[in-house]
Design a protein around this nucleic acid. Structure first.
Lengths: 144, 144
DNA sequence: TGATATTTAATTTAACACAATTTAATTGTT
DNA sequence: AACAATTAAATTGTGTTAAATTAAATATCA
């Protein structure tokens, strides 16, 4: 029934449903994000840019919990698409300033539909969604 | 204070803390898993194998929510390490049977320490951990 | 002040994961 | 028996991430 290896079973892990949920939710976004020609990581980066308009890579990394190894190639792609610009700071050449373009801002209007569509897919009650949100933020605070 | 783009802000997304939590938790595992010379995905695969002892790739994929594109190279690495064997089924040559080896089983003893160590890192109350577990499983059921 | 070390910021590289496609084996239908 | 449809795994290409590297700025001290 129960042996000493029970604690190694997948059903007794908290990390596993967390890993699976995140992966599945990103997968659910895919068809919606394909319409904007964005990956999920590009999407959250654009969310940060829609809000902040200007940012350097370091700040963006702190907001998004991404490091520059992820952001550098990603930002180059967004620049290629014309959604942002990348320019070195005159004051400190180490800093790369990211600015949103007009085209980038325009994309927000198309993106507005997505959060509502996703809610419909995930199908959690308002209470569960709020509870999940709170616990995940606690977890993130704890591990920083 | 509030504008029509509020619904696109990161702080109003549920997906974002989910994405960050999963990533950060996997990152926390890294130092412990380095001692076993396993990646996180290899670790959950070994968990499935410690429990089931034998499995084909399809079954393993269903258990782990991974596809053959992820599993094929991963299983070859675990085979190289001597933790599993990969053999084609005699009954149906399309099926690749994965079996755990003695060396693979032995690794479970070292892995036994990890769940406890991770609990210490994540630092959620028993109530929060249980609640999180339940909601995540609901979410996974909903999106299947 | 000038030389050197340290810190900081971003890029590059290599490994891993995932989506989409391909190949191979089996089953079903006529 | 022949062909189509289905199933299982492998392969390929793209994106993400950790670790190492490069470049720039600042601090230390002779």
């Amino acid at each position: 029934m129960s042996d000493k290896y029970d604690i190694l079973k997948l059903k007794n892990q908290l990390c596993f449903p967390l890993y699976v949920s995140a992966k599945e939710v990103v997968r659910l976004y895919k068809p919606f994000l394909d319409e904007l020609d964005l990956t999920y990581t590009q999407y959250i980066t654009m969310m940060a840019m829609w809000e902040h308009k200007t940012c350097n890579v370091k700040e963006l990394g702190e907001i998004l919990f991404l490091d520059s190894g992820t952001l550098t190639p990603l930002l180059k792609k967004l620049e290629d698409k014309g959604l942002i610009t990348r320019t070195r700071s005159k004051e400190d050449e180490r800093n790369l300033i990211v600015n949103i373009t007009q085209k980038g801002m325009t994309l927000a209007d198309k993106a507005m539909e997505i959060p509502g569509k996703m809610e419909g897919c995930v199908k959690l009650s308002k209470e569960d969604a709020e509870c999940l949100y709170k616990i995940l933020h606690k977890l993130i605070d704890n591990v920083q």
